[in-house]
Amino acid sequence: MSATAPPPSADAPPRRGATARRTAPSPRVWGLPLLLAAVLGGLYLYVGSQDLDRIERRSLNAEYLLSRTVQHLTLSVVVVVLILAVAIPLGILLTRPRARRFAGPVLAVANIGQATPTLGLIVLFAVVFVAWDVRTIVIVAVWLYGILPVLRNTMVGLDQVDRSMIEAARGMGMTPLRVMLSVELPLAVPVMLSGIRTALVITVGTVALATFVGAGGLGDVISNGIASSRDTVLLTGSVLVAVLALAVDWLAGLVEDLLRPRGA
C-alpha cells in the first residue's frame, strides 16, 4: 500500500508514431491535377490543329464553351447548396433520440429513390411538370438524387461517435447543443465529408444530363457532337465533363484531408 507516484512509464509507453500524420503532399496528390492539365492541353492542341467546319465551330469556340461551363457550375453549385442545406440538418435531426424512430423509414425511401435512374428522374419531372422552368426541373431532380449520400453519411458519422464520450461531455455540464457542435459534429466530419464528396461528383456528373431537357451545361457539347456526328465536338464535350468531375473529386479529397480533425 505504498503511495508514491510511479514514473509515467509505469503505463505502456506512448505511441509516438501517430504524431507525424500530416506530411508534405505526396507526388500522388499532385499527379491527378497534372494529368488533367496535360489532358486539357492536349485537347486544346488537337482541336487547334483541326480544320473546323461551320457546325464544329458553332460548339468549339471559347464563348460557347465558357457559357456552358458557367451554366454547368451554376446548376451544380445550386444543387449542392440545396443538398447540404437539407441533408445535414435532416441527418442531425434523425439521429436525435426523439426522432430516431423515423430514421429507418426515411433511409428506406431514400434507398429506393437511389435505384431510380437519374436520366429517368429528370425526364419524368420534365414530362410531368411541363410548365416548370427546365433548370428548376434539373435542379430538383439532381438535388433529390444527391441527398441520400450526404444524409446517410451524416447519420452514420454521428451514430459512430462513441456514446460514452457524449455522456462524458454531458456529465461535465455541456449543453446538448454544445455537445453537438464541439464533440459530435467534429468527430462525424470525416464520414460526412466523404458523403459530401460523393454527392459533389454525382451532382457534377448528373448535371451533364441537363442537356436532355434543354437546361444547358457542358452536356450540350456532347449532345451537339452526337447529333452532328462530329467526333471533335463529342471528344471536347466528353473530356471537359470528365475533367471537371475528376477535378471536383480531387479538390474535395484535398478538403477532406484538411478538415479531418487531428488525433481522431
Partner: peptide, 21 residues
C-alpha cells in the same frame, strides 16, 4: 476509381469515337 468518377454521359461520349454508336 478514375473510371468510376467520370460522369456516365461523358464516358459514353468518349467511347463513341473509337467504337461508334
Amino acid at each position: 476509381g478514375v473510371f468510376l468518377t467520370i460522369p456516365s454521359y461523358a464516358l459514353f461520349g468518349l467511347l463513341i469515337t473509337p467504337l461508334g454508336l
